[in-house]
């Protein structure tokens, strides 16, 4: 039963235009991340070459090429922004679509008049969503590698490839949390549109509101994974700084930048701690989804007496 429900979800998602549009956008943006990285790389090299020529005429020794010390994966730094924006939105829609038909169109009544338990149903839905997200992340990984190879002419070392895979594993975990949020919001609301609206509200709070609060006076922090330039000695900023581990969006960006070697270096253990809140959110959302499905009255999903 679980497999049949998972397979149905995968098939249904493959044919839904809204989902496909978001998926294509994410993959295009993934490819663009490599292109943008290549353009900025070329610009810096061009400026560097001009500086070297200029310095050579004056007999001054040129400083080292900045890209000689820059890690290869830094070319993909924009992915750390695209995943919480487009990726999370796509995952929300995925979660929403995976539950909405069964709830609002009354298909749930047909399903539960069969030999399907609530447990196998919710497991099937989660498995289906995870399968789709895994395929998307794998496709995104391939696009990233291809864009590095084709556009930048960079062949990844085994270590860099491992880091890129790890980045996409963390991204998969992050997107799973949003897919589950999409499922939970459908189960909490009676109207399909309200479910999607609520899911978007949660996405806004997690992606923008909480990071703004937890990063104090860093107005661009919700978009750019930069190191905190402001001293947070005042009480308010002490509080917001302490609340930062609760911001899954911030933690995702921080962990990702470390994995891609963009941010300031830290130990593997410290990076692992940053992933922990995301994992906790996934577990809480999965438990909540299971609880809501087990208690949901599918007999009243649609028009009844």
């Amino acid at each position: 039963m679980t497999r049949a429900i998972a397979a149905q979800l995968v098939l249904s998602l493959r044919r839904q235009r809204t989902f496909l549009a978001l998926l294509v956008t994410l993959l295009v943006m993934t490819a663009l991340a490599g292109v943008i990285g290549w353009i900025s790389h070329r610009t810096i090299i061009k400026v560097y070459d001009q500086a070297v020529t200029l310095l050579a005429t004056t007999g001054t020794p040129a400083p080292p090429n900045p890209f000689d010390t820059k890690p290869t994966l830094a070319l993909l730094s924009n992915m750390v922004i695209y995943i919480p924006l487009i990726g999370a939105l796509m995952a929300l829609v995925l979660g929403h679509l995976s539950m909405a038909d069964d709830q609002s169109s009354g298909i749930g009544r047909l399903i539960f008049s069969r030999q399907v338990t609530r447990r196998s149903y919710v497991t099937g839905k989660m498995l289906g969503a995870l399968t789709v997200l895994t395929v998307i992340m794998a496709a995104s990984l391939l696009v990233s590698v291809a864009s590095l190879l084709i556009v930048n002419g960079t062949v990844l070392s085994a270590s860099d490839f491992g880091r890129l895979v790890l980045f996409y594993v963390i991204s998969l975990l992050y997107l799973t949390a949003f897919a589950l949020i999409g499922m939970v919001t459908v189960l909490l609301t009676r109207r399909r549109s309200m479910g999607l609206l609520l899911a978007l509200g949660v996405w806004l709070v997690l992606t923008f509101a909480i990071p703004q609060f937890t990063s104090g006076l860093r107005p661009t922090a919700s978009l750019n994974p930069i190191t905190d330039p402001v001293s947070t000695s005042q009480t308010f900023f002490d509080v917001t700084a302490k609340a930062r581990p609760l911001s899954v969006s911030e933690q995702y960006k921080e962990a990702s930048t470390r994995v891609l070697e963009i941010g300031s270096p830290e130990s593997a253990l410290a990076t692992s701690w940053r992933v922990l809140p995301i994992g906790c959110l996934v577990l809480v959302m999965a438990a909540l989804t299971a609880l809501l499905v087990s208690r949901h009255d599918y007999s009243r999903s649609s028009v009844n007496e």
């Binding site: 039963m1 049949a4 429900i5 149905q8 098939l11 249904s12 044919r15 839904q16 038909d101 169109s105 009354g106 298909i107 009544r109 047909l110 399903i111 069969r114 030999q115 399907v116 649609s302 028009v303």
Partner: peptide
């Protein structure tokens, strides 16, 4: 049920196969 709705994005055969599996 009274207001029968199956999965719109799937064909009639795919819907039937799904419910047969269940």
């Amino acid at each position: 049920p009274s207001d029968v709705r199956l999965y719109d994005h799937m064909t009639a055969s795919e819907n039937l196969e799904f419910f047969a599996k269940l």
